[in-house]
Nucleic acid binder design. Sequence first.
DNA 1: AAATAATAGTTGCATTTGTCCACTATTTGC
DNA 2: GCAAATAGTGGACAAATGCAACTATTATTT
Lengths: 160, 160
Amino acid sequence: MSDAGQKPTSIEHVDLDVLEDTLSFYIRTMNIAVSRDLDERLDGLDVARGTGKITTLLLVDSHPGIRPSVIAQLIMKDRSAMGRLIEQMIDHDLLVRQTSASERRAHELFVTTKGAELAAKIRPIVTKQSKDFFSFIAEEEQAQVMDILRRAYRKMIGMK
Amino acid sequence: MSDAGQKPTSIEHVDLDVLEDTLSFYIRTMNIAVSRDLDERLDGLDVARGTGKITTLLLVDSHPGIRPSVIAQLIMKDRSAMGRLIEQMIDHDLLVRQTSASERRAHELFVTTKGAELAAKIRPIVTKQSKDFFSFIAEEEQAQVMDILRRAYRKMIGMK
DNA sequence: AAATAATAGTTGCATTTGTCCACTATTTGC
DNA sequence: GCAAATAGTGGACAAATGCAACTATTATTT
């Protein structure tokens, strides 16, 4: 009970207890903020909301024929969630799907013309959003954080 | 369209397009991983799942009489979401609520005995989880990332 | 070659969450 | 005293998440 001040009525009176020094807290909280900001910038672009649509579109665009299961690993979704995501994007005429000739269990994904256009459109938005959002952090520090988190991410998904 | 390899069937064949250098991507993705891991460790503790319960419990424990709206700002929820969260925690006998004498619009929150016990129990878990999860990152680098994200967070919620 | 296991994907269901909007009560400012 | 701001509640609705069961296809075992 570190009780920093009586009955705080403003965030200025508050310390975050052990969360103050907990990296996972900041990751989780920044996630909310950055995701909201991103959603705003992508408003109306039928790739907004939720994690995965952007990554899926860009990956399919730059890796034609990629499988759902590969994307699922990269964005840490289970197959059912991934399937639903793809279904949705097919409904929106961004992707098409065909079963692989060599591996008839698997699907191959491709972007439609509309999908390719959207990919081209969001690429700069996504890049800019990240830069803008973290703009008050020095470029150098941004790069540091990114390097570290990139390593974490790769480890996480079992990439070598 | 950087098409790094034909029809990738494994994550090793894939590059992340512009997301490779996008900080927000890593934040969003690490969030998923770290949240899952945390949920596992808190399994059964009726503070698991979703952002906010942990922060709320610890904050109320260390700042008796704190208002819902203050917590809402700190965890970036709107008032209605915050209200539901508190409702839930009251149902679980972790918190109690009373209207403030001086500000009859506002509520003051307090932990119950059960809430205090749970707070004491999860504090080390939360701390350890974060350390463990990022253990393959050098202590020094963890601290760096945390410093930077802490500044980002404070800016974000309008803390000076 | 037949049986078994593993992989890729789909479907349904229950649970949560988040968002938006309208509503009451109280306090503050003019 | 009236209007605006603040604190909190409640309802509706759309998404996302997690889990488990199910089909189809390929790999492995014996």
